[in-house]
Design a protein around this nucleic acid. Structure first.
Length: 210
DNA sequence: TCTACGATCTTT
DNA sequence: AAGATCGTAGAT
């Protein structure tokens, strides 16, 4: 049912961040009976991205972002939301992709139980909801997503066509980076937040930020 | 140590 | 438009 093609190899992640973000759409997150299909992501690139958590250098929190690609970076936002990121690019470069929205494929009952509802919206639109559906906390930060066990990322058929637009909640960044179209989503899905700010693109612009 | 604030989400 | 809720970063 999930059409699982197995774990994504570490090389998948060790590429330019916007390319990884683009290719993560449609892939599958597995975690203890729950399977989610990634429908919306944001790229936090390196260097020259003033919205990036690594913009001030290395800290205890962002340490996984500087390491090898393919690990999780999980952090607590606004004191309540655990945000799932996938570390990208080369070691020594602080870059990652934030998973913003997912379509639930399996384990809806488990997702509801984790959220504490019996029913209610199944929409996993917004990174806080994704983290809750996967029952993530900061203990998962640094976890290898390319190895079996716990939290895994699996391959799935490639998608065609994307929506692109500005990232959410980064008003503190420089105007150039506030406007940069580094949020990507699948066009055909309902699992996308703030769709009105997204526009169809034939291919996300991958101009490097060297 | 101290303090301001955030890659959010829900409710009013 | 604002409240919940707390770890973190940068300043002191």
């Amino acid at each position: 049912m999930t059409g699982s093609r197995g774990l994504l190899p570490q090389e998948f992640y060790a590429r330019e961040t916007l390319a990884v973000a683009r290719d993560l759409l449609g892939k599958l997150v597995h975690r203890d009976g729950v399977v989610l299909r990634i429908t919306e992501v944001e790229a936090y690139r390196w260097p020259d991205d003033t919205a990036n958590h690594c913009r001030h250098g290395r800290t205890a929190r962002n340490a996984p972002m500087w390491g090898t690609a393919g690990r999780a970076y999980v952090y607590l936002c606004y004191g309540l939301h655990n945000m799932l990121n996938v570390v990208t690019d080369q070691e020594g470069r602080g870059a990652a992709v934030l998973v913003r929205s997912c379509e639930p494929i399996e384990g809806l009952q488990t997702i509801r139980a984790r959220r504490g509802d019996r029913e209610g919206p199944e929409l996993l639109t917004g990174p806080g909801k994704v983290g809750a559906a996967l029952a993530l906390d900061r203990g998962w930060s640094g976890h290898a997503l390319f190895e079996p066990g716990g939290l895994e990322l699996h391959d799935a058929p490639p998608v065609t066509g994307w929506l692109a637009g500005p990232r959410v909640g980064v008003q503190f960044a420089s105007p150039q980076h506030v406007a940069a179209p580094w949020r990507l989503a699948l066009p055909e899905t309902r699992w996308v937040s703030q769709r009105r700010h997204l526009r169809p693109v034939t291919r996300p612009s991958c101009a490097p930020t060297r």
